[in-house]
C-alpha cells in the first residue's frame, strides 16, 4: 500500500524561541515576562494582540521581556537604564537567525 498525503489541515501552536527553555517542553507552560508576569506568548497589558504585535526583547544579560514592558520600564527615571532583573545596564542582544532554531541549550543559558 502506498499512502500519499494530499492535504493536511493541521493545528499548531506557536511559541517564542526564548532560547532558555527546552523547545520540546511537554507541558507547554512557557515562561512569563519578568515585568508583567504574563506569558511571553500572551501580550503585555497595553496590547490586545499577541505575537508580532507584541514582540519580545532579548537582553545581553539573557533576560527576556515583552518589548513594550521593557521600553516602558526604561522610560521611567527609576530604571537607570538597567535590566530590572539583574540591574546591569540594559543592552539589547542581537538575535542571530538560525541559532534560535537550533535545538538544545542556548549559548548563554
Amino acid at each position: 500500500m502506498k499512502i500519499t498525503v494530499k492535504h493536511w489541515h493541521a493545528v499548531a501552536q506557536w511559541r517564542w524561541d526564548t532560547g532558555n527553555s527546552d523547545p520540546d517542553d511537554a507541558d507547554g507552560e512557557g515562561d512569563v515576562c519578568g515585568i508583567c508576569r504574563v506569558p511571553f506568548e500572551g501580550c503585555c497589558p497595553s496590547c490586545k494582540m499577541p505575537g508580532d504585535d507584541c514582540p519580545l526583547i532579548w537582553g545581553e544579560c539573557t533576560h527576556v521581556f515583552h518589548l513594550h514592558c521593557l521600553l516602558k520600564w526604561l522610560g521611567t527615571v527609576a530604571s537607570k537604564q538597567q535590566c530590572p532583573m539583574d540591574r546591569r545596564t540594559w543592552v539589547t542582544a542581537e538575535r542571530r537567525v538560525g541559532e534560535a532554531s537550533a535545538p538544545g541549550p542556548a549559548a548563554d543559558s
Binding site: 498525503v5 493536511w8 493541521a10 501552536q13 524561541d17 537567525v97
Partner: peptide, 15 residues
C-alpha cells in the same frame, strides 16, 4: 526566526 511551532497532532483533518 524567533518563533517555533508545536503541532497539536490530534486536531485537524488529513486527506
Amino acid at each position: 526566526p524567533d518563533k517555533r511551532l508545536k503541532f497539536l497532532p490530534h486536531l485537524g483533518t488529513i486527506t
